[in-house]
């Protein structure tokens, strides 16, 4: 941590608030998706896949803890990974809307995972090359995991898109449910711009990759869909309040207790 604060002090001091906000955005997004995926634990369609989705959930949780710990160090005010995850409110969470949506059926969970993981992979490849050494280090570790998430989820999208009539129809419905939340991934918040994240570049490659997978899955890529956004700035769907209510229940009920 020492080297990072030195580096940021010398190079880009005005960035500090943005760096913290951006790190929290990454932390919140991975935590909330982990929380959603973990709802499948014990309820998956096939035992092997129950294990796989829980594995992804664990990977995302690990990533979120790294980001929260970094954010806590940046804040340097006694914050911890747990105070940041458990004691911030709906309006303070900066996660993408996509990750807080209800799981829906297995197809919806899988498609969301693919759309997100494909984005996350490209984003983290950029972070890996970025000037923030701590974010680069977290990204480098996570990329190994995300590469597997992309492979696993894209294979499922293809299987379900090009499986039975029922699975194909379910996937069409799922695309309709999720697509309007994908635009937000590429609309830069002030903290992303400040951190030099090039979302336009990611958008282009993401669209190519997703189109290739959808083609193989015999699924259409929607065009000109209205974009729902707000998560990056703390304006969420009505779902997030319920997620946080569960997630934060014990910390809120027994303030200050150690677990």
């Amino acid at each position: 941590m020492e080297s990072i604060s030195k580096k940021s002090d010398s190079k880009v001091p005005p960035l500090e608030g943005f760096r913290e906000a951006y790190t929290l955005h990454l932390a919140d997004t991975t935590l909330i998706l982990s929380q959603r995926n973990s709802e499948w634990c014990g309820h998956g369609p096939i035992l092997e896949q129950d294990i796989a989705i829980t594995n992804i959930s664990l990977d995302l949780l690990g990533q979120s803890r790294n980001f929260y710990q970094y954010a806590a160090a940046l804040k340097n005010d006694g914050s911890t990974e747990d105070s940041l995850a458990y004691l911030r409110t709906e309006r303070e969470f900066k996660n993408l809307l996509l990750v807080e949506l209800e799981n829906g059926d297995w197809g919806q969970t899988i498609l969301r995972q693919y759309l997100f993981s494909q984005y996350q992979l490209l984003l983290f490849q950029q972070l890996q090359q970025g000037s923030d050494e701590q974010l680069a280090a977290i990204a480098t570790k996570a990329i190994k995991e995300i590469t597997y998430h992309v492979r696993w989820s894209s294979e499922w999208v293809i299987r379900l898109g090009d499986g039975t009539d029922e699975s194909h129809n379910r996937m069409l419905h799922t695309i309709d449910e999720l697509w309007r939340y994908t635009g937000e991934l590429f609309e830069a918040a002030d903290y992303e711009t400040a951190m030099g994240i090039d979302l336009a570049a990611i958008n282009q490659i993401w669209t190519e990759k997703v189109t290739a997978v959808f083609d193989e899955a015999k699924l259409p890529v929607p065009q000109n869909v209205f974009v729902q956004k707000g998560g990056k700035h703390g304006i969420h769907t009505e779902q997030l309040g319920y997620i946080l209510t569960e997630l934060q229940y014990l910390q809120r009920t027994y303030p200050g207790a150690k677990w």
């Binding site: 998956g44 369609p45 096939i46 059926d105 297995w106 299987r159 379900l160 039975t164 029922e166 699975s167």
Partner: peptide
């Protein structure tokens, strides 16, 4: 879980 996973298993087998 088994019932709701039926379409998934069928799709995987069909694919």
């Amino acid at each position: 879980a088994h019932e709701e996973g039926r379409w998934v298993r069928e799709a995987a087998a069909a694919h």
